[in-house]
Each structure stands twice: as structure tokens, then as C-alpha cells.
Design a binder for these strands. Structure first.
Lengths: 346, 346
DNA sequence: GTGAAAGCGCTAACAT
DNA sequence: ATGTTAGCGCTTTCAC
């Protein structure tokens, strides 16, 4: 095992000298060895090995203008950031895809409003080739910052300011929230349920409004009293359920916009003596691992491939960067499919 | 608002030209403006503003040999990584401290054994100035990798291979696990409990053995049957509790090495009809936010400042890097205090 | 206090 | 197929 010598790190120059070739040839070999004779290639490789040579990243970036790094911007002010399995799974997906392309993940956590400046400087400083951003709210400053910095960016979740006409303009990855919601409500309807309520998420998040739209697609004439708004948390689901039961004691089904709210609703239903699914059928959304299977009864819910979405975000960005270099058009957004998972709650 | 002009980013050269000074002077001002006359300083600053100049990071790194970035290495193969609030809180602490020093956080997630190579290359490539690593197991290859790459590294949690004599050699931040455990057991003892059991964590993690040592400090002659081993998960806590109740039906207190295991133990105790704290007093460890307060009864537990530990890790590393540049000795490890939080379970 | 000039280590034309 | 050379944008002696 050739323990690399101490002292300053060897340069390409040193490798070239040792292999008896020019720096250019050494460089070619180090980068993948196209158009270099077998014999020389081996010499260089041996020198690299013996010297423990590792390319200097800064020098390379300075001339290629590529960093091989991607920023992941997380603007969620809540504690949710990591605790929410949603984020963690997306990050895992991103990390895997980036690693597979030898790209690095730079994590940009926004804790306070003052952090936006820091992020802007960072993106403008050319530290990264592109950015991935999450769950933006209606008035989020991130898109303006990335645009001004000329930083290619892929969004996780449809930005709520993206109208239908902009679909091409801002690349994003999102689940088919609307279609999934339609499937959920249609399923309840096919079960024979006639008073199907909906517990929605906050109106300033696209995923919430899209799911509500899906509900309305199937039940355009639903009683407005059957719709309550939550905040994607367990408690807010419980509160919404309480409200709904008061307004519409005759409801016989609930479609909650996520599993956390569904579990809150379930708790209230049980407390009120309504059996699930007999009296009230319940469907959630997300198929969140710890939640959906752990409730009693386990939740029928809409599944989406969250880690896959993360991978896709990274892939879209990397592909976009490649295309940018070649002058071809950047790839557009992707909507990933959802599927209904039947368990015992409906 | 001076919208930066499109096209190539302005260089320091451009700023200097516009301000009518030399590149050297422009550089001095940009870096903090020591030893430059007021008048010139202002001229340069104005040029920076007008041009929307942002220093090129790669060029700067190439000459200073500093990247302003720190790697956070997470080697946990389990899904725990983010779901575990422990990690997320430490990362938040790290992120805050790094942001305050304008350093960047590069996340290195190890998914498989093959990833060690990638990490080694990355660290050797000079992408980062230092590294932060977590929860290493006895045979973890990370320390060897960072050492070989000559990468200053601070560990989160005492590396289990660190004997007492190495305390100086490897800088780490850890809670006073042993002292906290002593406090927990002494508290139970002061309550008058005489058959105090312990549910420990996996023996290859220092935090687990340290807590066990703390238990033994107070009860050196404890019946070995009163000690069971878990895996820091809820289920393993339940299993260990079941085992303990069979071996020692007369136990009247349990000290669990973390809150998750305590909650599992609590579940089993309730199922078996033992009231907590009357029949069996229960103390946990960590004061994990969602867990400790949510159980019924809420857990008496040992609290540690996890986010603070993250901040401390970052601070230690940054300080070490500064010292390295100045040739002064690197700071040693830090043990953070723990405090007992009384709730209803004991 | 300010400027001129020499690199940092690498890639990419361009010659050969 | 290989070598020569000119930078990439910045910091940092060293003169003035």
C-alpha cells in the first residue's frame, strides 16, 4: 500500500515528470485517457498511484468553470425540515443520484430571513453548478435569487406561483397530486359513500390546492361544509375533523390531504365513537412510512415515490447542466405517478 | 437596484479599472479593507456595487488553499439518519455555526460500503478544509480515511476506539453520558428504589457503554440479571423490558439508555399491569422532543443540548483550522453537561 | 499606502 | 498522438 508521502500534495507537473511525459498528456490520462497510447497511459497511471496524486479541485474549477457541486436549498422555517420523513427521503434520493454522478451536495439551510442574503452571495459566487429547492410558498424569494444569480434550478413540488402557461419555464418534479386525489375520492365514491368530506392543507402550498382540485374534479357539487382546512400536522387534522363532525354529522367518508392529518382525524373519529371504516371510511395521502402503517386501523392512502422524486430532481438538474453546455434545450418538468394503497381504513 | 449586467461575471480586474486603482488595492478592499485610504476604499466599494462583483471562489481557493467549506460525514447505514431527531438537531446546530462563519456545509451521506472510496477521494481532493463525523462504530473506516487525507476532523460522540489516554489525540464533542447516567440512577436510588434495572444500548457504541458505566458507578454490586441490552429503538426497549420482567419480576425501577427504549419499556410495563411510576419508576435519556413529553406518563429523563453539541463541533473544527494556520495547538475535546428533567414517570 | 509582477494547478487551443 | 503555451481570477510578496 503506497502511503502517500507527507508534505505538499503532488501536482500534475510532478506526475508528468515522473512518467516522463508532458503535463498535457498527464492531464488527458487523469481525466479519462482519450487519445493516449496504452504505454503512456500506464506510465502516467503508475505515477499517479506512486505519488498519491489527486487533482486539485480549485484549479480545475477555475478553468473549466464547473464545480461538480449542487446546492440543496431548504427554506422550511419549521422544525419539520428533517423530522418530516418527506424531506429526508427526498434528500436521500438526491444524495444517491448526485453521488452516482460524482457530484457533491452542499446543504443550504435557511434559518432566518437574514439568511437570504447569504444564500444569494453564495450562489452568485460560483460555488455550485446548480441548485435544488423545496416546497416554496407563494411569496418565496428563492426563485428571484436563483434567477438573478443565473443559477439553473430545479424545484421540488410545483411552485405555487407557476401557472399552467409557465409549465415549461420552471422545471420541477412533483407527484400527480391532483390525479392521486381523484383516485382517492373516486375510490370512496365507488365504495358507495355519499357524504365524502375533505381535510385540505394550507392554501398557499400547491400540493394542498392540487389535492383539493382533485377532490373537486370528482365531486364538483360537493357541499362546501364538507371541506375543512388543516396545516398538514396531526393536530390540525384532529381539529379539522372535529369541525367537520359538528358541521356535517352525517358524513360517511373523509379524504385527508396527508397521512398526518388523517391520523389526527382517525383519533377524533374513534374518540367520538365512529368506527373506521364502517361508519366513516378514511383515506390519506403520501403513504408515510411510520404513520400510515402504524395507525389502527392502518390507512388506505395514496402512495408516491418520494425518494424517486429526489433522484429525479437531481437527474433533471444534471441533465439540464449538460444540455446547457451543449446549447440544447433544458428538460421540462416531471409529474410522477401515484397509486392507491388499500389498507383497512377504507 | 443595480441589476448586474448580463454576460460574463465581472472580475477583480474590472473593479480595479472602474475604480481607477490596481488589482492589489481592489483585492485589499474586497477582503476587508485594511491599510487602504478611505477615499480609495469607497471608490472600490462603489465599483463593486455597480458591477455586481462577487469574488470567484475557485480562484481564491487556488491561492489561499482554503475552501471555506466543511464536510459533514454521516455514515449511519440505517434509515435513522434524518428521521432521528438527534441527527437533525445536531445538523441544525452545525449549520447555524458554519453559516455564522460564512462556511459551507457539504453533506457526505454514506449509503453503501463502496461509498468509502468516493469519500476518501473527495477529502483528498481538497474540496473542504475539515470534516465533522458522527456516531462511529468500533471498526469504522472513517477515522483512517480522514487521517490519511490529512483532514482535520471533529467527531460527534466519543469514538469508541478512543481510550482514556487518547483523549487529546482525537477531538470530539460528547455529552456527559456517564455523569448523566449516574444522576439518573442516583435519583432512582434516592427515591428509595432498590431493584433498579438498566436497559442499555448496543455495546459497540460509546454512548451506550458510557451510560452503562454510569449505572455501575452507582450500583457496583447490581444483580447482572437486572441489565438487558437493546438497540436504541422502541421495539428493542419493549423486548428488553419483557426479558427483564421475566428474569426479575421484583424490579421497582428502570433506567433506559435512551427515550425511545424507555417508551418501549413503558408500553410493556403498562401491558403487564405495572403502574408507572408507582410500581416501577422509569427514567430515560436524551429528552427527545417528540418522545419524552408525548408518552403517558411523560418521561423523567436526562437532558442534553443536542443542537449545542452541533454548534460546538463546528466551532471546535473552525477554531482548530485557525490554530493550524497559526501553528498553535488544536483545541481538545469537549464534554457537555447533562441535567435531569423531572416529569411523571419517576 | 499603493502598484507591479509572480505564481497557485490545471485545462484547452494550437502546433507539431 | 503528444508537447507547448496561454491563460482562468485571485492573493501576496516585494518594491516604490
Amino acid at each position: 500500500m503506497p502511503e502517500p508521502s507527507p508534505g505538499p500534495r503532488p501536482t500534475l507537473e510532478a506526475v508528468a515528470a515522473r512518467a516522463g511525459v508532458s503535463r498535457a498528456t498527464a492531464s488527458r490520462v487523469v481525466r479519462g485517457g482519450e487519445g493516449v497510447r496504452q504505454a503512456l497511459t500506464e506510465k502516467v497511471l503508475r505515477a499517479v498511484e506512486e505519488l498519491g496524486y489527486v487533482p486539485n479541485h480549485a484549479a480545475r474549477t477555475l478553468v473549466t468553470r464547473r464545480t461538480g457541486a449542487v446546492a440543496v436549498i431548504i427554506a422550511e422555517p419549521e422544525v419539520r425540515i428533517f423530522t418530516d420523513p418527506f424531506f429526508s427521503q427526498q434528500i436521500r434520493g438526491i444524495a444517491k443520484e448526485l453521488a452516482a454522478h460524482d457530484s457533491q451536495l452542499v446543504l443550504l439551510l435557511l434559518e432566518g430571513p437574514g439568511d437570504y442574503d447569504r444564500i444569494a452571495r453564495y450562489l452568485a459566487g460560483g460555488h455550485v453548478d446548480g441548485a435544488l429547492a423545496f416546497s416554496l410558498h407563494t411569496d418565496d424569494p428563492i426563485p428571484a435569487i436563483t434567477r438573478r444569480a443565473g443559477m439553473p434550478t430545479v424545484y421540488g413540488g410545483r411552485p405555487s406561483w407557476t401557472a399552467a402557461r409557465d409549465h415549461q419555464a420552471v422545471p420541477y418534479v412533483d407527484a400527480d397530486n391532483r390525479g392521486g386525489a381523484r383516485a382517492a375520492v373516486r375510490y370512496l365514491s365507488d365504495l358507495g359513500r355519499r357524504r365524502i368530506a375533505h381535510i385540505g392543507g394550507p392554501r398557499d402550498q400547491a400540493s394542498a390546492t392540487d389535492r383539493l382540485d382533485g377532490y373537486r374534479d370528482v365531486l364538483p357539487d360537493a357541499d362546501p361544509a364538507l371541506i375543512a382546512e388543516g396545516a398538514f400536522t396531526e393536530e390540525s387534522g384532529a381539529a379539522a375533523m372535529t369541525e367537520l363532525l359538528e358541521r356535517c354529522p352525517d358524513l360517511d367518508a373523509v379524504f385527508a390531504a396527508n397521512d398526518l392529518m388523517a391520523s389526527g382525524a382517525l383519533r377524533v373519529l374513534k374518540e367520538r365513537g365512529r368506527s373506521v371504516p364502517d361508519d366513516v371510511a378514511l383515506v390519506g395521502f403520501d403513504d408515510m412510512d411510520p404513520v400510515a402503517k402504524a395507525t389502527d386501523p392502518p390507512l388506505t392512502t395514496i402512495q408516491q415515490d418520494i425518494e424517486g422524486q429526489g433522484r429525479l430532481m437531481a437527474r433533471l438538474l444534471l441533465r439540464g447542466l449538460a444540455h446547457e453546455r451543449e446549447g440544447t434545450p433544458a428538460p421540462a418538468s416531471v409529474i410522477t405517478p401515484t397509486t392507491l394503497v388499500r389498507r383497512a381504513s377504507a
